[in-house]
Amino acid sequence: MARRNSSLGFLGRFGRSEDLRSLDAALRAVDVHPALCPDGAKLTIVNLMKDQWPHGEPPPEAYPPVAELFGYCMVGPDLFGEANGPDAVAAAERRLEMALDRPESFDAQLVLLALHARLISPKVVDRFGLSAEEG
């Protein structure tokens, strides 16, 4: 199966591709407005997801976990916790800690994207000692 390209739409005439709509919906579900995340970052996220499913499109159930981690990174533990509860914060923090131990993992790529795109909460940077410096 050929990999489909993502589309942002054009002048309201052509709609956004299904993958971007799914990511937007997943971000909304964790109380992160999709407009807070630039389209370039969202395109990168869906392309990273497609790399995880090289023989097809990511399934619908793949989007919520991505939005949970990326949303946590964007808004930080306090706002994320207010909207999603302490269990969701703990789960996101566990994933982030594991990502730091596995720098080639998908979750690590999401955290690195948030860091390099300057979309990451300063509280997350401080809590986990993150840095964009090359090692």
Rank of each mutant, 00 (worst) to 15 (best):
F10A: 12
A29Y: 02
A132V: 05
P34N: 11
R3S: 07
S7I: 09
L112E: 08
C37Y: 15
R4F: 10
E18C: 01
V89R: 13
E104T: 12
L11P: 07
L110S: 12
F70I: 00
E61K: 10
D87H: 00
R28K: 03
D87Y: 00
S121V: 03
F70Q: 00
R127D: 00
Q52V: 05
L48C: 05
P38E: 15
P86A: 10
A117M: 06
A91Y: 05
M1T: 08
C73E: 12
P86H: 06
D24Q: 01
L79G: 05
E97R: 10
V30Q: 06
A114F: 00
A91Q: 12
A2Y: 05
E82M: 05
A2D: 13
C37D: 12
E97P: 04
T44C: 07
D101H: 15
L11W: 11
P58T: 01
L48P: 14
M98A: 05
L96I: 02
F106C: 03
D107F: 04
P60C: 11
P54D: 10
R4S: 09
M1K: 12
D126G: 02
R118S: 09
V89S: 05
R3I: 09
K42R: 12
A88Y: 03
D78P: 02
R4V: 07
H116S: 08
Q109M: 03
V124N: 07
E57A: 07
L43R: 08
P34S: 09
Q109I: 00
M74A: 06
V30P: 09
F80L: 01
F128Y: 01
G56Q: 10
L36G: 03
V66P: 02
R118A: 08
V89P: 04
N47D: 15
G56D: 10
L130Q: 07
P34Y: 04
L112H: 03
S22E: 14
E82G: 01
K42F: 03
A26K: 14
L112A: 04
D107R: 14
N47E: 15
K123H: 11
L20W: 13
E18T: 07
P122Q: 15
I45F: 00
L8P: 10
V46W: 15
D19W: 06
R3V: 07
A41Q: 10
A108E: 06
N5S: 15
L110D: 14
S6V: 09
L79P: 03
P86L: 06
E61G: 08
A114V: 00
P77L: 04
L27A: 00
A99M: 04
A62V: 02
R94Y: 06
D78Q: 13
Q52H: 05
R28I: 00
L23V: 04
T44V: 06
L36Y: 09
P103W: 10
S105F: 13
K123P: 02
G76I: 06
R102A: 14
L96T: 02
V32N: 02
P103Q: 12
L100A: 04
A83N: 09
L69N: 15
P86G: 07
V124H: 12
G85L: 03
E18R: 08
M49Q: 13
V75S: 01
A99W: 08
